[in-house]
């Protein structure tokens, strides 16, 4: 019981930190990291609720299967988001470079 509560709370706090960072920080890579941390928090809560201590019966396999597919989907979505972020940066730099000089656009696109 105490283990379940400990890991659930850890997952909950991870979810909260990820949510806060997702809104507050502006760099796209940081946002993708934040979404990953959020999903990890949700997975942790799911697995922790299914946990039963050793020697007190079997663990519930249904949340395990859900989290397993969730991890794979979250990794592929992360890869897609990274490609999208790179693509956005390339094209937005291209548009800005046609109008302005290089260093200003480089500075602007970082923030």
């Amino acid at each position: 019981m105490i283990t379940t509560l400990l890991y659930s709370m850890t997952g909950l706090i991870l979810f909260g930190m990820g949510l806060f960072t997702l809104i507050v920080h502006s760099h796209p890579l940081r946002k993708i990291l934040a979404v990953n941390v959020m999903s990890t928090g949700v997975f942790l809560i799911l697995i922790a609720t299914a946990y039963t201590p050793l020697g007190q019966g079997e663990v519930d396999p249904v949340p395990h299967a859900m989290v397993l597919t969730g991890i794979v989907v979250s990794v592929s979505v992360t890869a897609l988001a990274l490609i999208l972020a790179c693509r956005v940066q390339e094209t937005s730099n291209l548009d800005l470079l046609k109008k302005k000089t290089v260093p200003e656009t480089a500075k602007e696109s970082t923030t």
């Binding site: 019981m1 659930s8 079997e58």
Partner: peptide
């Protein structure tokens, strides 16, 4: 909410 989940909830195991 999480702390009020009963730990003897009937799972699907």
């Amino acid at each position: 909410i999480l702390s009020t989940i009963p730990n003897s909830a009937p799972g699907l195991a």
